[in-house]
Write a protein that binds this DNA or RNA. Sequence first.
DNA 1: CTTTGTAATGCTCATGAGTAGCATAATGGT
DNA 2: ACCATTATGCTACTCATGAGCATTACAAAG
Lengths: 335, 335
Amino acid sequence: MASARKFTDDAKNNEVTPGEAQTVLIGLSAAIVSVAEERPRVLVMHRGEDADALPFGTFDPLSHRTLESGLRNWVEEQTRLQLGYVEQLYTFGDRGRHMTRPGEGPRVLSVGYLALTRPQQGRGPETLWHDWYGYFPWEDWREKKPPIIDALIMPRLAQFVDSASAKDLRVSRQDRIRLCFGGDGIAWDGEKVLERYELLYEAGLVKEAQRDRQAAPAGGPVLPLGSAMVFDHRRILATAMGRLRGKMKYRPVVFELMPPEFTLLELQRTVEALSGIRLHKQNFRRLVEAQGLVEGTGRLSRKAGGRPAEQFRFRREVLRERPTPGARLTSSRLR
Amino acid sequence: MASARKFTDDAKNNEVTPGEAQTVLIGLSAAIVSVAEERPRVLVMHRGEDADALPFGTFDPLSHRTLESGLRNWVEEQTRLQLGYVEQLYTFGDRGRHMTRPGEGPRVLSVGYLALTRPQQGRGPETLWHDWYGYFPWEDWREKKPPIIDALIMPRLAQFVDSASAKDLRVSRQDRIRLCFGGDGIAWDGEKVLERYELLYEAGLVKEAQRDRQAAPAGGPVLPLGSAMVFDHRRILATAMGRLRGKMKYRPVVFELMPPEFTLLELQRTVEALSGIRLHKQNFRRLVEAQGLVEGTGRLSRKAGGRPAEQFRFRREVLRERPTPGARLTSSRLR
DNA sequence: CTTTGTAATGCTCATGAGTAGCATAATGGT
DNA sequence: ACCATTATGCTACTCATGAGCATTACAAAG
């Protein structure tokens, strides 16, 4: 604690000691999410294989009044995108989790954000919308349980368990695997995206783990478990996914991603894309309508075959009518 | 954006530009919570009236491996307390919200934490456990609706509404008041502690607002709305209270605050103290027992008059048995 | 014009969680 | 013995949720 000062000093003397905290950069990164064609997309700056990055920049105390305004500045500059909904996720500061190559670079404090936007063009150069399941192929259960789990992940996690010398450690690793990936009476929990990523990271099964480590991972080469990202950006994206999946259950945030008019099925498909699971159609409609979240416009959509669907719009008023605009769009049921 | 660098530069060149971010200090602060005698307490360092501070220190990139370990170091040094449960809350970076006097001091990024501990001694000098309702007297609804709301807060908030020149602004302020303090069909929501504090701050009704402002508050002197704290510490405490009240509903965090053995009524009183509302006794028991969160020890407690109560202990196993150890200790019901 | 496929939409039923209250049991104190 | 107090058991009601059946409305193929 050489360079840190005590509270007592701090309170009496508010001057900056020059050079004190200068080795820390503050990174602001945004997971900007959109849904198109029933796929959740995240805006990345593609810089070669396994070098995708979220839009980001460093906090500038002189020009940025708040962290969020700093983030908005960076994002607008890099992507030519106006952000609507923005939410702070978490601040990571772990030594060695922000490397390009092991042991390199300054210490970085990384503040992650989630942003939501409708599908839109006009992004800057080098930016692309990527399906977020490209980074987390084990998270999409809409069709079926992703085969990658049983084929690749579980066997390698079993090795991870065995590689522990102490029995306690083996048991606790086994428990973590059960809690993260389910089985043995435990159901899959779509919100545990970060927990799963961190487990795979610790087990050395994602490329970032290899990159950050001095030593090679135990138990063979890294698996092709989704595309890697620069710095801790995949960790931030995992946080964003989990937070969004959770938030959808009690706040009407999906509508930030919808066009002005949409059918209930389109809304459902969007929720399903994000949550990674299928929903019961009739119940979904009942839920949405009972909450008073939408109102019909009378117009019909004929995009799909079959009976035309009525188009709806989001009732923005609910945001000021009710304290917690229900919007439990996906059950909210705990177990 | 003068001193900030672009992504492209950053990715190619990971060196620190000396002097770049040196004007930012990173503050780590902890709201350490405990419950004794049916009152929630927070550990503060008392330094004179309206100068209470949470234990805190600055992040040191050299000696702190993670933000949390840095925080633990500071807290242990200042309070001689070993922390158990610790959770990151939020990172604040607003210019002008970390002042001692207006316009003073360096730019500070403030990372707030929530920590839970059993009532214990052995704290350092100057540290005291304060009832958290001393800082937020409008948050304790156990007895009745706090009189301060109708007597002082609502009238002054009404002035705040009137003081807006544009009609839009008046309407939106009125909506915020309804959402924060209820009324007109909207129920009180115990989790909105931060929203309420921020509203009072913006309306200039808490001392911190006066302190941070250049100009005097509109509409008269500041009200005695609870004790003020140093820097943004009351804001962090508000965040902690809201988070804890929410978290209790779906995680068995209360047990971090309980002694090894306790009666169900003691458990209930603790939950009530934190959530600020009364609960239905029989239902509370049923809930706790149905969740399998506790097991009886066979021993009886005769602390209170009346029929002796059985003593229970927390079943730590649930943490590894179930993915989401229910622990919906206070309903979890949304509206 | 009829058939077929597809989707939208309306309803019912069973289950379980949450709310509220009554009733009884077991103490200590007067 | 009676009363105050707390623990504890149990029931009735409401409402949210999960699952499925039935019907309606349209387009396209024959």
